[in-house]
Design a protein around this nucleic acid. Structure first.
Lengths: 209, 209
DNA sequence: CCTTGTTTAGCACGATCGTTCGTGCTAAAC
DNA sequence: GTTTAGCACGAACGATCGTGCTAAACAAGG
């Protein structure tokens, strides 16, 4: 294993990539420093030195996962034009991100939310909640924009709509994995379509692909 | 501790009740035989002898949780009259079950589904999938009955409806805990109402409370 | 060549994990 | 009164957990 100075950051990235992959399957709590080290062919203490504590490893893992999430979900979707099409693109982009197995265990943050939701507060839980809030807010802002474009009806409650969209996306993430049945992606797309059509104006309905 | 013969089953029940409570928070994998024993004031080996392996403890815990689930969610809801009102009662009963904290970590099976969804197949995962399938099927059968009563439209796709209802219920379970914000129960009730109204006939809409 | 700072390895620690074993106690069966 | 079965105990096993401490390998700057 190359051990150049300045390579520390690269090693760190390698560790975090594997850590996020692992955490999406085993959970952030199930992350094992020893197992990570073995899989990377390095020593436990050498890996540990990069973070100083398991909690800091978890926090760094979340940040790495967030970067990958932005890259895989937000960046592609934000190329869609403002309005109902971007809202639709966000949902589709999320489903595609689960489908492409960007993380091998499905959505990293869904897994983390389920794992830490009921736990006592702490830095890790707070960061997870923060990430989740940010994603929901992104959905809602897209819905607000669509309403401003008159593609969603004025009466549309965007916060409620964001909740219902998220619900369909998350459930697809769970069911696809539990039943090993990708048809739940179609179910989620169907649900998203229903929700968008129900809230859209004629203009908006026409804008939908 | 009383140690009469015939008390074994009662002790087992006590263990399983605590185990299910704990698993709803820490996950089935996070169940620790030592911690359970300590909390119950008994020895690790004594507790262990009831099950023979951790996996069998997990399986027994799932069965106990299923009994409590049936008691807390299904039994009350099945008192509602067949049709759309029973479908609505099932959803409301689920939300109430989470709200009353029948399990301290929220819905036991939601937590287990999230934890074992991405894992390699095995007896535990299979049992969880089985429980989840049963609950979804219950929802769908209630929807079928409502359609047979002409309270839901003939065109209503009951499988899709069951998925969308479940999605709202599950998401409330996650968000309420992650954000410690019970208003997500209302959001879920709102979503359930929208879905039922959208699929219902005039007769059905009138039957809704 | 020597120093300096960064990065990794080696080794050991206390704790906890699931599991096994032998034992003791009590109530029931004979 | 003797035997059997049920139930729980305490001690110990090997493995793995997160976490320290120390030293070696390395690249760069003087």
């Amino acid at each position: 294993m190359t051990r150049n100075p300045g390579m520390g950051a690269a090693t760190r990235d390698t560790i975090l990539r594997l850590a996020a992959d692992q955490a999406s399957v085993e959970g952030l709590g199930g992350l094992s420093i020893g197992q990570l080290a073995t899989q990377l062919g390095m020593s436990k203490s050498g890996l540990f030195a990069h973070f100083g504590s398991k909690e800091r490893l978890q926090l760094a893992t979340i940040e790495d996962a967030r970067r990958r999430y932005v890259e895989a979900v937000l960046v592609p979707a934000l190329r869609a034009p403002r309005g109902i099409r971007r809202l639709d693109a966000l949902c589709d982009s999320f489903l595609s991100y689960v489908e492409r197995a960007v993380f091998p265990g499905g959505c990293f943050f869904a897994a983390a939310m389920a794992e830490f939701g009921g736990k006592e507060p702490g830095p890790v839980r707070d960061k997870i909640a923060d990430c989740q809030r940010q994603w929901t807010a992104t959905l809602q802002r897209a819905a607000d924009a669509a309403r401003d474009c008159a593609e969603l009806m004025d009466a549309c409650e965007t916060e409620q709509l964001a909740f219902e969209l998220e619900a369909a996306l998350l459930s697809a993430n769970w069911y696809v994995r539990l039943y090993d049945d990708p048809s739940y992606f179609d179910r989620a797309r169907h649900a998203v379509r229903s929700l968008l059509e129900a809230g859209s104006t004629p203009t908006g309905r026409q804008a939908l692909p």
